[in-house]
Simulated assay, not measured.
Amino acid sequence: MNFPEELKYTKDHEWVKVEGDVVVIGITDFAQSELGDIVYVDVDTLDETVEENEVFGSVEAVKTVSDLFMPISGEVIEFNQGLEDEPEAVNEDPYGKGWMIKVKADNIEDAQNLLDATAYKKLIGA
């Protein structure tokens, strides 16, 4: 499994990439492998401010639906429109084409409180 060192991670299996005062968020390689074939990504919080640990959407796999939790408070400013036609991109490239949302963070420093790759690997026993 792949856990890029430059990303931050949550206990709920989201990843965060900091780009200035914006963060890009998706689910980890581990999460997509546990879910199986992803058939739909639902994000209904575009242009809304979502607090840390609140649900910002859900991901639907063949056998289950899983909530997506906001790792850092902020306004959802972009949804990856490519996932509407190609939700399997989350399985194929979770850290690239499979990103889910971009958020204008309320406080970008909060990202430093998330797990690094080593801590996340330990959490999942990898």
Rank of each mutant, 00 (worst) to 15 (best):
P87W: 15
L115S: 04
G96Q: 14
E92D: 15
L114W: 00
D85Q: 05
P87G: 15
W99V: 10
P94A: 14
N80Y: 05
E109R: 03
A89S: 15
Q81Y: 08
L114C: 04
E86P: 02
P94V: 14
D106Y: 06
E84W: 01
N107S: 09
A89Q: 07
G98N: 05
E86Q: 08
Q112Y: 09
I101M: 13
E109Q: 00
D106L: 08
E88C: 11
K97T: 09
I108W: 07
Q112E: 14
M100H: 12
V90E: 02
A111K: 05
P87F: 14
L115N: 06
Q81C: 06
Y95P: 06
P87A: 15
D110K: 05
P87N: 15
D110T: 09
A111H: 04
M100N: 10
Q112K: 11
V90I: 10
A105L: 10
W99G: 10
K104Y: 00
E109G: 02
K102A: 12
E92S: 13
Q112I: 06
K104A: 01
I108G: 05
E109S: 09
K104F: 01
N91E: 02
V90W: 00
E109A: 07
E86L: 02
G98K: 04
I101Q: 09
K104W: 03
G98R: 03
E86W: 03
N113Q: 10
G96A: 14
E88R: 14
L115V: 01
E88W: 08
P87Q: 15
L115T: 06
G96F: 14
D85F: 03
N80V: 02
N80K: 10
P87S: 15
N107Y: 06
W99R: 11
V90T: 01
Q112P: 02
G82H: 12
N113E: 11
N107C: 03
N107L: 07
P94N: 10
L114P: 02
K97F: 14
D106E: 11
D106H: 02
M100F: 12
N113H: 08
K97M: 12
W99P: 08
G82V: 11
E84C: 04
K104T: 03
L83D: 06
N80T: 10
N107F: 04
A105W: 00
E84L: 08
N91Y: 07
I108A: 04
Q81R: 03
G82I: 11
M100A: 09
G98L: 01
K104G: 03
A105M: 10
D85H: 04
A89H: 13
G98M: 03
D85W: 04
A89N: 13
G96I: 12
I108F: 05
E109T: 04
K104E: 08
Q112T: 10
L115A: 05
L83M: 05
E88S: 15
V103Y: 09
N107V: 02
V103K: 04
